[in-house]
Computed example of a mutant assay.
Amino acid sequence: MITSGNKYAASLYATMSITFWGVSFVSTKAVLDKLDPFTLLVIRFGIGAVFLCILLLILNEKLTINITYIPHLIVLGILGVFIHQVIQASALLTIDASSAGWMISLSPIFTVILSMIFLHEKMTLFKAIGMILALFGVFLVTTAGSEQTFEPVLNIGYLLMLLSTLNWAIYSVLLKKLSIPLSPLVITFYMSTIGFILTFPFLIRNKGWESLSHLQTGEWAHLFFLGIFVSGVAYWYWAKALHVLEATQVSVFLYLEPLATLIAAVVLLHEKIILISVIGGIIIIIGVIFVNGQLHHVLNWFYGRNKH
């Protein structure tokens, strides 16, 4: 029986996961001044893999895997870890962390589009309205830096973030298709390890170790945060939340991620709050809620919060 205490604990786990993921854009942005994207990711994945391995040993989780699932893990690791993180880190070289946080909310839009193409899901009026709203929100976010003139900002970073959201949607669809009989924590460990292996050759090519000596305590703190809390704890807590709450209930918490990014960007990076960007971000989230048909879940979530 699921008690109210268990539900509150699960809500806390989900909130912490989203907070860590939201702040990850800020931590990545903070370190990119000293490290190239590949060196950053090598260190992050390495720290994450070691942490997760220790955690798995403490929890006595089995790491053995059937050889038939290794290709599945490699494909998921390339798409969901290597390509996804490289694209995001490259995007953050030219755009603000807060803008990246807003735009990543588009991932569910692409997931729905791919589901309609490959899974033959139907287009509805709510989905159409949601997509239009989300696209309009993206327009506002990408024009926020043009001195309020609403002229499109031709920045490769925004294009890379759009590509990132599409890539994550493809990864999500594949993750549903490929049924891997492992716990989420074990899969996360293998994903982080694959990310480390794939990015390590770029560390050698770029001689990334030479940049490590220039890192100060603050930058190392961001790296350890990315490795331990973003690559490790966040995925673990997300899985714990899913053990108690329904997937639709947990997914509502995703709408808090851009807010966490915005707050962290203002506090840690001293980014300015641009009203148009905030309005655009809110419109994106509203559009995503419509597309995913989660309006009633969101209302129930807020009603439950206010009731208590």
Rank of each mutant, 00 (worst) to 15 (best):
G280L: 07
V250W: 03
F126C: 01
L63Y: 01
H296Y: 03
I70M: 07
W220H: 05
T217Q: 06
W220R: 03
K177N: 09
G227V: 03
G232P: 08
L41Y: 14
Y190H: 06
L174D: 01
F302S: 04
L52A: 05
A265Y: 02
L299Q: 09
G208M: 10
L226K: 12
V250E: 08
L226M: 14
I65G: 07
I180R: 13
T15H: 05
A14N: 04
S98H: 04
A10L: 06
V42H: 13
T143F: 00
I78K: 05
E61G: 01
I18N: 11
L133N: 04
I18H: 02
G77C: 06
I54P: 00
I47S: 04
W209E: 07
V233L: 15
G232N: 06
S98M: 09
V250L: 10
Q294F: 08
T149W: 00
V31C: 11
F25H: 09
V23R: 11
M131T: 10
V138G: 00
A49S: 15
V23L: 15
I285E: 06
V86R: 13
F150A: 02
E257C: 03
N306R: 10
T94D: 06
L35T: 04
L125W: 00
F225C: 08
G77D: 06
I284V: 12
P108M: 13
V23Y: 12
L154Q: 01
M1A: 00
P181T: 13
A169R: 04
A265D: 04
G101P: 12
I273V: 15
M16A: 14
Q216I: 02
S4W: 02
I74M: 07
S183K: 14
V298N: 06
V244H: 00
F253M: 12
L133Y: 11
L57Y: 00
L254G: 09
V230C: 15
Y190N: 10
V26F: 02
S183F: 06
N66P: 06
H270D: 05
I187N: 11
V230G: 07
K29G: 06
Q216K: 11
W168M: 13
S17E: 09
S105A: 15
K177V: 04
